[in-house]
Design a protein around this nucleic acid. Structure first.
Lengths: 195, 195, 195, 195
DNA sequence: TATGAATGAGTTTTCATTCAT
DNA sequence: TATGAATGAAAACTCATTCAT
């Protein structure tokens, strides 16, 4: 009965696949642009599809947010692997720290809003990333370039710091420059070289 | 304040005055606890009054937020004055930086959400605080204890950093310890002593 | 502190009370007119209030439907009491049977749609009504005017029969006459007089 | 029906024909199980085909419902013919009355929801059935076994009664027994024997 | 042609704001 | 004046119908 092609069981329509990707990408953009509370209509508009399409794939809001978080964690894990393989221990640390910093806003928001409801898949993924990040931190500490009076958790927590985007005391906003400056000062505060 | 006549017209004021203060205090607590988007219902509950009462005093959300901001800026200005009068230039800087840090989340959020609409009173108050803060920073830089490769704006902007309260990668939240750690690392990154 | 009136604890605003009644009455009318699936907007329009008002009293659809059912059961219980006190046992039975018949459509629909979720209050109310109805049936059977080869449950179930409102085979609809006819035939089938 | 040429153009029909029948049968089952408002998705699932297939054959809900009604009326007409040929006039009446009763729920619902829009074919079919049913009723009345104080329309309308499927007052549902009981009581109310 | 993914109008539900008491 | 009930616009979510594959 089945044809020559062994893929007959799961055709996975081309347009469906494309839409799935567009929805997830749109959700990431929408969350980045409008915050965690973005409406599904906004996400749908961003993706160029109807609301129903978004709901077909993610019947509940939490599921879509979990998918976004999964996506972010996946990219961070990739960075962590590259960081571990970097030539210099400090360079690797800077690579990961910089990337964590860039994405920490959404990541933190999603993490805390999903709470423990993210599901076991996300929990596992997060544990994996934490294991890798710990190795990156300990490698840098082992090489003597990163302060040893902080736990690896303290160090990771610091990634939150460079994200704060508000305009202190109403100073002109210069987010990009500001983030670079903050990152530089934090790294100066973390490295042991000059001490 | 100037109520020369203790006539029958006055007594109402006492109640109203007390309520006004309770609402403002409640708003500060509510904003600190639930963020800038707190609902008026939440603020009313916190103050122990009806929503209507909050709306009566602050017909627009912006007005209430401006009052909160005014309150915060007033406290920060007081700190800045004490910082200027501190014995050590670095100690003064640490005092102000620490206080700005503590309140920067709300302050920053309020500042940016109010935009330029805060009204002239707030603008003036902010200018005054900025002038004082600039003196504190430049005094520390003059004394050689604070890095000079950053503008005073960069330095003030960094107060945002230590407030980020999210839990990076789902690590256990330990906000108090985390803030102290972040503050210490930032100050280490800012001071010139050991270099 | 409390004034002279001991009712200060639960003022129960006049308009709120009026609205509560209007909403419930509107819900009964709307369910009767448009079926169990009526939208809350329809009910609100019927009541002349905003949707929010309906939701304030009945945060979930099921709660409103339960209230409607409670209302109907209350009226039926009153009828059952009067039926028990009627002079003739058969007259009493006809009174209750006729009323049950009139309301059985909504009652049955609500009962089955609420399932066991109606809550204990409704369950108790239903049990009370059933107890009374059983007495009415058994009284008529005891007096020899109602067939004894049917259980009281069978008899009550028959109340469903006279409600069917469809137009058999597309015959002109004459609901009122039809219901009277059906009721008469059923009662003839149930009484023992002429046998 | 007239396919003289067994050419290549024909084979498609077999499949299509089978599907058409499956859809109609599924629709009858679905309407019986879930009521007139059954969704096309439900019917498609029941038939084991995609929704699109159902829509292809019956672009409008009304067309499918008309087909279902046609099917039911056809079966009832056959019963009516057998009823007319039965030995006893009362037995014939009971045969038809019982069958009408069994199917009256759907039939009535469909008849009234289709209104006069059922199309001329259905109107004709219905007229034919009514003529036969009238003869069955009048034959039983002529034989003296069926009450003569009711018009034949009243009698037919009573077929609606025995179908009511709700559970009066939340009594346990016992549909089969209940229908038999109701039928028996109705027939007792209709026959003249014991009077 | 058969399929089921996509669509978007309609429903339920929430909540910032207004207003009768 | 203080209150919290009422309001209705907007968000979440469903599902009958259409249409690309």
């Amino acid at each position: 009965m089945s044809a020559q092609k062994p893929t007959a069981a799961a055709p996975v329509r081309a347009d469906a696949q494309r839409n799935a990707e567009r929805v997830l990408a749109a959700a990431r953009r929408a969350v980045a642009a409008h915050g965690l509370e973005v409406s599904f209509h906004e996400i749908a508009r961003e993706a160029g599809v109807g609301v129903g399409t978004v709901y077909r794939r993610y019947p509940e809001r939490e599921q879509l947010m979990a998918a976004v978080l999964r996506d972010i964690l996946g990219e961070l894990t990739a960075t962590a692997r590259r960081a571990l393989e970097a030539e210099g221990a400090w360079d690797g640390f800077v690579l990961l720290f910089g990337d964590l910093t860039l994405r920490s806003a959404q990541n933190a928001g999603l993490s805390s809003s999903l709470g423990q409801h993210g599901g076991p898949a996300i929990a596992a993924q997060r544990r994996q990333l934490l294991d890798l990040a710990r190795l990156v931190v300990e490698r840098a500490q082992g090489a003597g370039s990163l302060r040893r009076d902080l736990t690896w958790q303290d160090v990771l927590q610091l990634t939150q710091a460079a994200t704060a985007s508000g305009c202190a005391l109403g100073l002109e906003p210069a987010p990009a420059r500001s983030r670079q400056t903050t990152l530089a000062v934090l790294l100066d505060g973390l490295r042991t070289d000059a001490r």
